[in-house]
Design a protein around this nucleic acid. Structure first.
Lengths: 205, 205
DNA sequence: TTCAGATGAGTGGCTATTCATTCAGTATTG
DNA sequence: CAATACTGAATGAATAGCCACTCATCTGAA
């Protein structure tokens, strides 16, 4: 009746289970918080059995790690690619800020996991910090330093601190957006931040 | 042999237990994270029995709430008092920033609880948000608006957003300070943030 | 003697993880 | 072609460990 091929096409039953589990976990973590989420909840949401989760992940914690790793990896990759095509340091910073808020603004659940759940223990923060976060901050710092060399930005500022300030401001926009009852677009906030930030760090003309 | 008075002075054995428990909890939460901390750990650190904790707090969660409530209350009170004595809006913002980082910088454990543990669930964040946080942000906003009225700050900026930016930048300084292996003073970072911030929001002369 | 405050062993509930079993699809055989 | 065996994925009931919270009992100050 059915060739093997048509059968598998007709029913890609759970498609990629690993993917389904990650998506479900993001949803569940966002809704209940990591510690209050049960593996059984994730399994149910993903449409698989409890045990199946452990065929793809070693532990509940590894699921959280995977969500983080994949997203940060993607984000940094995209940012690097886009920055290559830009030479103006101001535009580089603008692009970073836009991508940052665009990405978080596009997936509220993911944003919650990033802004809230990932910070729920110093241990996790330290790993987070060590891994992608430092790389991300240095992306900002490099762009700023370029601007300093080009005399566009004030020479006397400490680039590391400057990078943290921009990141912190964007981060706060994201956190507020998540917690706000009112629905508004996150990405446009980038321009308001940049207005003040660039004005603050630019050399006097 | 001993009058009651001298006795109780000589041995305030556990002094105020409620206080001891709160201090112990701050330490324990900072070290292990809220969810990984056992009530038994807190009791041991405070030098009381497990059950005693429940004579002073309804639950483990109430302990976290209490730490938060007391600290935010104190901080806002102190800030309000100091701001009364200042009229220059720029100085007001400077004072807020200094107090903010000074307070967190003075107690690393408390800072960890604030920067990390308190954010570990949207539920908690929402309460946090509703309660003291909004009040704190509006403290910043008011000072900024005063400056706008005095034509010191750019008229076209949205004061709410501006407040979040300053808060976000300070917040990021605090978080980085906690996670950093290197030991440095937190409070002086306030001036670096203010330099860029005030420069960014001030009216062109 | 009294009793408010303190104790800490025990309980109940919960949930991450395991693993014996089932199942679906594929290869092997006659 | 049908019957049978094989294989790896998937299942979910059972387990094992953990820990917040309770309460019967104790203690020491007045």
């Amino acid at each position: 009746m059915n060739s093997a091929r048509s059968l598998s096409q007709a029913r890609p039953p759970v498609a990629d289970k690993r993917e389904a589990i990650l998506r479900a976990a993001t949803r569940v973590f966002a809704r209940n918080g990591y510690f209050n989420s049960k593996v059984a909840d994730i399994a149910r949401d993903a449409g698989v059995a409890d045990g199946t989760v452990y065929l793809y992940f070693k532990s509940k914690e590894e699921i959280l790690h995977s969500i983080f790793d994949r997203s940060v990896g993607d984000a940094i990759l995209e940012a690097r690619q886009q920055l290559e095509t830009i030479s103006d340091p101001r535009e580089k910073l603008r692009r970073i800020a836009h991508l940052h808020l665009e990405r978080l603004g596009a997936d509220r659940d993911l944003a919650v996991v990033f802004q809230v759940e990932l910070r729920s223990s110093t241990k996790f923060m330290e790993e987070f910090s060590a891994a992608g976060f430092a790389e991300y901050l240095s992306l900002i710092r490099s762009a700023f330093e370029e601007g300093q060399r080009a005399k566009v930005f004030r020479q006397e500022l400490n680039a590391k601190v400057v990078a943290k300030i921009l990141f912190g401001a964007l981060d706060e926009m994201a956190t507020n957006w998540i917690l706000s009852k009112r629905r508004y677009k996150l990405q446009p906030m980038a321009d308001q931040v940049l207005d003040i930030f660039l004005n603050g760090v630019s050399s006097r003309k």
